[in-house]
């Protein structure tokens, strides 16, 4: 039998088009390549939603079960640092979005500036986070490592808890604060891990952007990284009220 009857003209003309060097050989057009990678990035973000989804589910259930413990424990978080971090992250999202715009409009120095700012703001976020973590370590609020329920059975001994006017929790309920702190560390830690990965990629991108790699018309990488960075921002947009704010008043 001879070769394929189905195969007809079609690819022949495409083969004669000029292909930019960044077009991978198995795509017909650069538009197809950009669409495909963009869609792949969105699908990857779907898996990220579900990954964090498991933690959010655990948080909702346990918060409903041990409401007083979660309220008292959340009072230990510092709203000032939390709000500052929210602002930092939103600003980094903004600089990232501007970076994408600079790449799209082929502004090389603008792109490098935006990426450097995003990089620095990411580091500031992690710096503030580490200050918050070290507060928790000092007060033995890290679950599993010499966890102490002192602040919750005797709030008067803890200036933060005293400032909120917390009432002492029964021993049984006070122990449940450890679950809150575990979820706090798991969720913010997983978020910070995503930040660290993002910052590492940003470092690589700054290097490449200085060489002009993203301002020659091929901006998919910057755009897709932008999607990732904004996603990380969105996770924080939900973590901030859930962990810091919603129990402030009780």
């Amino acid at each position: 039998m001879s070769d394929s009857p189905v195969i007809t003209q079609g690819a022949m003309e495409a083969a004669h088009h000029e292909h930019p060097p960044y077009q991978r050989h198995h795509f017909e057009t650069i538009g197809q390549q950009n669409d495909a990678t963009n869609f792949a990035m969105w699908l990857f973000l779907l898996t990220e939603i579900m990954f964090f989804g498991g933690l959010f589910t655990a948080y909702l259930i346990l918060r409903n079960w041990y409401y007083p413990a979660f309220v008292a424990a959340s009072h230990q978080l510092n709203i000032v640092w939390g709000s500052a971090n929210t602002a930092v992250l939103i600003t980094s999202s903004f600089t990232m979005a501007m970076g994408v715009w600079c790449a799209e409009t082929r502004r090389k120095s603008g792109l490098v500036l935006c990426l450097v700012l995003t990089f620095l703001l990411g580091l500031v976020f992690l710096g503030i986070k580490s200050i918050e973590y070290s507060e928790k370590i000092e007060k033995h609020h890290v679950p599993g490592f010499h966890y102490s329920i002192q602040s919750f059975v005797d709030p008067a001994s803890d200036p933060v808890a005293a400032a909120y006017g917390d009432k002492p929790l029964a021993l049984d309920m006070a122990r449940k604060t450890e679950l809150y702190f575990f979820l706090y560390f798991a969720m913010t830690g997983m978020h910070a891990l995503h930040m660290i990965i993002g910052i590492a990629i940003l470092g690589f991108m700054i290097f490449r952007a200085r060489a002009g790699a993203y301002t020659m018309g091929h901006v998919t990488f910057v755009e897709n990284f932008g999607l990732y960075w904004h996603f990380v921002d969105i996770v924080w947009i939900f973590l901030f009220p859930l962990l810091y704010l919603i129990s402030r008043h009780q």
Binding site: M96, A97, H230, D233, I234, I237
Partner: peptide, 12 residues
């Protein structure tokens, strides 16, 4: 609302 804004505009 914040997340929707980020998704619609920052994420295009």
């Amino acid at each position: 609302v914040k997340a929707v804004l980020v998704v619609l505009f920052f994420m295009h």
